[in-house]
Design a protein around this nucleic acid. Structure first.
Length: 269
DNA sequence: CTGTGCTAC
DNA sequence: GTAGCACAG
């Protein structure tokens, strides 16, 4: 081989290496935050979306979520429950489907079969009954977490119904809900879907004059205690989950609202 | 309302 | 896979 040809090959190799390296870097940058779906403003009037600790946010028509691949479920599901969303429509339950918008692959419903746990909705089907599509969309497995049946049909169901009551009474609320995802959880199924030990729900009402907020943290077991016993400061849930629930709020008001476990503004009738 | 599971095609 | 029905909290 001629010396000149040799150096030409070296030069070409260098160019290829640099381009390749840049390509990989670019790809990594993009993979840091995967975001699927349309702008959340089409989903919610305001931008009340929490931060993601997992880097994978997905917007559906009726709710948004942040998917945690290691736990095979959402770390949060967020949506606005307007008064006008409340409906007595009675849709048939569809089959659960894998959420194709989850690029890392959402769990299959078979993980839950004979596991002893319910496929517990995070955004309840009962909150999305304003049309068939919104209802059926809640049956994506990205919106599901393993829940004990007694818990799901008991205290958790009671809380979900109370949220609907508040949505009606206060003309709409923003809801964020999920399981507390840690690293030492029991799992079910071949894909190892984590079973949370606690579930949370955070609400904010911006439609009733002064902004009010409330947080609930529940052990993953049924309870006959009244709902208000589970009220905690929202920042205690943020500490547990690493999620910032309302980064859009001004710091001053956010700090004040999130530090409080005061529920006097929320009617528990 | 929240769900599971069995049977049959 | 899907439809129907019984069942449980």
């Amino acid at each position: 081989m001629k010396k000149r040809t040799f150096y030409s090959l070296i030069a070409i190799a260098l160019v290829v290496a640099v381009i390749g390296y840049e390509f990989v870097l670019k790809k990594q940058e993009h993979s840091e935050i995967i975001e699927q779906g349309s702008n959340p403003k089409s989903n919610t009037n305001e931008f009340f979306l929490p931060t993601s600790t997992t880097g994978q946010i997905i917007h559906h028509e009726g709710y948004s979520l942040s998917y945690s691949e290691p736990h095979e479920q959402a770390e949060w599901v967020a949506y606005e429950l307007k008064k006008s969303h409340l409906s007595n429509a009675n849709y048939d339950r569809p089959y659960f489907e894998i959420d194709q918008a989850v690029k890392t692959g959402a769990a299959h419903w078979r993980n839950y079969k004979n596991s002893g746990y319910d496929r517990g909705h995070l955004c309840p089907a009962g909150d999305r009954k304003y049309n068939q599509n919104a209802h059926d969309e809640t049956f994506l497995t990205s919106n599901i977490s393993p829940q004990d049946h007694g818990f799901n049909s008991g205290i958790w169901n009671t809380l979900e119904q109370k949220v609907r009551y508040w949505a009606s009474k206060y003309d709409g609320v923003f809801v964020v809900t999920g399981g507390v995802l840690t690293n030492d959880l029991k799992t079910i199924g071949e894909e190892h879907v984590a079973v949370p030990n606690q579930f949370y729900k955070v609400l904010i009402d911006v439609n009733s004059g002064k902004i009010k907020m409330i947080g609930f943290l529940m052990p993953h077991q049924n309870s006959k205690e009244p709902l208000y016993k589970f009220v905690v400061p929202v920042d205690s849930i943020e500490k547990l989950t690493g999620i910032d629930f309302f980064p859009q709020l001004g710091d001053a008001i956010e700090t004040k609202l999130e530090a409080s476990a005061d529920y006097k503004d929320w009617s528990f009738k």
